[in-house]
Design a binder for these strands. Structure first.
Length: 185
DNA sequence: AGAGTGATGTTCT
DNA sequence: GAACATCACTCTA
């Protein structure tokens, strides 16, 4: 458990969301005293009617237009803080949503934040475990919040994204959700 | 175990 | 004023 993982460089995030989203599986996000293994991600692209930035820049989605390696956090359904990592080049409104994770360290703290539960399948739960809020949106990854190498997925499943019925059919059906079920030792 | 639903508040029309 | 990249709980079986 005392393995030292190398921190990802900004270059890692500078590519298309469809490339970066699967690569984030098995990586470890360190934030607010806890560390989580990323197990499920979704890609959002500028040409994608499910993307918050599809209709142009607003105050909320402005971080998505930044260069890769920034955070985009927003409030969903009035309750949940959903955490995205901005990817691709500056001006390309693109991000990867963290949809599920496993606890790597800090389980006691996560239990406190999550009312005893360590289940982190669902983006609202991930945001709660990381204790990220809208106030963190637009921040760059830093010494406080960062992602390191981690584990290699045994396999990666693709599936349509969740909760985007409002999108055009071709975007709604695109398999831009990436899931890792187990990792190599 | 599956379906239904209230909570909760910002954002954009 | 409607919609929203959800969750946890209840109810019915």
């Amino acid at each position: 458990m005392d393995i030292e993982f190398k921190r990802l460089q900004f270059d890692f995030y500078s590519h298309n969301a469809l490339e970066v989203a699967p690569l984030l599986l098995g990586k470890i996000i360190h934030c607010n005293e806890v560390a989580l293994i990323i197990t499920e991600t979704e890609a959002y692209l500028p040409t994608d009617s499910a993307c918050h930035a599809y209709n142009g820049k607003t105050e909320r989605n402005a971080p998505m237009f930044l260069s890769g390696g920034f955070l985009y956090v927003y409030l969903c359904y009035g309750i949940h803080n959903l955490c995205n990592i901005v990817v691709d080049k500056e001006g390309v409104a693109s991000a990867v949503l963290l949809r599920a994770a496993q606890v790597y360290s800090g389980s006691d703290i996560i239990r406190q934040r999550r009312n005893g539960s360590l289940d982190l399948v669902g983006p609202g739960k991930v945001g709660q475990a990381l204790q990220l809020t809208r106030a963190d949106s637009g921040k760059a990854l830093s010494d406080e919040i960062f992602v390191t190498e981690g584990f290699t997925p045994v396999s990666i499943e693709k599936a349509p994204r969740v909760g985007i019925d409002y999108a055009l059919p071709q975007d709604r059906d695109a398999k831009w959700r990436f899931i890792a079920k187990e990792f190599k030792k």
